[in-house]
């Protein structure tokens, strides 16, 4: 066994040497068998991406195009394979989205292209790829990141979906505003029956769990913003669609409850420093529907106010809410047919789709803004828990 003499970090060049025959072992141990919830919890964020890039640098340094190609292909295929196998596990998908993006950023940061070198230290510039231009592979990896992002959104949607109607519409946290329940309200009165139902708190806790997982994995802040905007869109769209289909959700008190719930979601955004990510704006149709439940709906002036307020709702949606509106007590009345006709006349000239329900499957296009890292590759050490002792620091 050779004696391991510790070398000073400045003597390393930020590369990892491996034998061709160890490539399968590398992707197996680092990608296929790595458990984001186990070993990976204590890793520096993006470590698998840095390790793979440092291996790639060594193949590039040796001018071995075949080794570069097979490593990139094995890496991409292994990431796809693990996502096929564990694609319904949010932590796995988030972990590989963060690492795929980090790998993509490394390919840019060390590409030698001046546009990506602006923030590099001199030492980092010395670590640029020497022999190969991997621009085409960067495109493939960017496509892979888009696929992983879409999978992350689906995964998150599967978790959130069952909570939304219960937490945003059915569960009442404001006591005593309902008065007489509108007919058809399916509120359970027994506290035992309430156990196991989702509340707004369940949604907020889940959003917090998604957020902290992504932060822990070193996901780019710009990407987190896009995920959160998409989450809020889904919450808003599913809530509004259910409101548009359920008479028992169209009352003054439900409007109050929804506005309170929206304020709590906004509070969550503020707490996470995400007020400018566009998430709040995705709730606008829901906010306006809640306001519509609460405003007066009688005179021509009321009709005018409604038409200038509900710009994020389609005519079909406005008319549907007015038709479904159900008084909760004897002081209120149903919306008159003539009032609804007035609204329809006023909105006749609007250019819009006749769409009633929102598309809950819509996904905003994602971008991965370049995010260079200040980490010095030569300082990276590989924890023994990764079982990569066959890699040699160079």
């Amino acid at each position: 066994h050779p004696v391991n003499i510790p070398r000073r970090e400045k003597d390393f060049q930020g590369m990892l040497e491996y034998k061709k025959e160890d490539e399968l072992k590398l992707v197996k141990n680092l990608i296929l068998e790595l458990k984001p919830r186990g070993v990976a919890v204590n890793l520096i964020p993006g470590l698998p991406a840095y390790i793979l890039f440092m291996c790639l640098r060594h193949a590039d340094y040796n001018n071995d195009d075949q080794k570069v190609r097979t490593l990139l292909t094995s890496t991409i295929n292994s990431i796809k394979k693990i996502l096929k196998k564990r694609g319904d596990d949010f932590e796995t998908v988030s972990f590989w989205l963060a690492n795929t993006c980090r790998f993509l950023h490394c390919l840019k940061q060390y590409s030698g292209d001046e546009a990506f070198m602006k923030h590099n230290t001199q030492r980092q510039n010395e670590h640029s790829l020497s022999n190969f231009d991997l621009a085409e592979y960067r495109q493939v990896i960017s496509d892979l990141a888009i696929q992983i992002y879409q999978q992350l959104i689906k995964c998150m949607e599967n978790i959130l979906q069952p909570m939304i109607v219960s937490g945003m519409l059915e569960h009442e946290t404001i006591q005593g505003v309902s008065g007489v329940k509108p007919t058809g309200l399916r509120k359970r009165t027994s506290s035992i029956a309430d156990e196991g139902t989702y509340t707004l708190d369940s949604i907020l806790r889940q959003l917090g769990a998604f957020h902290s997982t992504m932060c822990q994995h070193g996901t780019d802040p710009e990407l987190i913003k896009q995920v959160v905007k998409q989450q809020f869109y889904i919450i808003g769209a599913v809530t509004l669609n259910n409101l548009l289909l359920r008479k028992d959700m169209c009352s003054w008190s439900k409007g109050m409850q929804i506005r309170y719930n929206v304020s709590q979601l906004e509070e969550w955004l503020r707490d996470k420093g995400l007020m400018t990510c566009g998430a709040k704006e995705t709730l606008e149709p829901l906010i306006q529907a809640a306001q519509l439940l609460q405003v007066k709906k009688k005179t021509d002036e009321d009709a005018e106010a409604i038409c200038s307020m509900c710009l994020a709702l389609t005519t079909a949606q406005i008319v549907k809410v007015l038709n479904l509106y159900t008084p909760v007590n004897e002081f209120e009345e149903r919306v008159s047919v003539s009032f609804i006709r007035t609204i329809q006349t006023r909105l006749r000239d609007r250019c819009e789709s006749p769409q009633l329900l929102m598309d809950t499957k819509m996904i905003y296009p994602v971008t991965f803004p370049f995010s260079p890292s200040s980490l010095a590759l030569e300082t990276i050490q590989i924890p023994s828990s990764l079982n990569l002792a066959f890699l040699t620091r160079v």
Partner: peptide, 29 residues
Amino acid sequence: PRSRPRVLLKAPTLAEMEEMNISEEEESP
């Protein structure tokens, strides 16, 4: 400053890689 330009490595598309991957997956049970 570099003395010579880097060599562009042609890459298959993600879809092409997927096709390549099918034969690979058939091997595993």
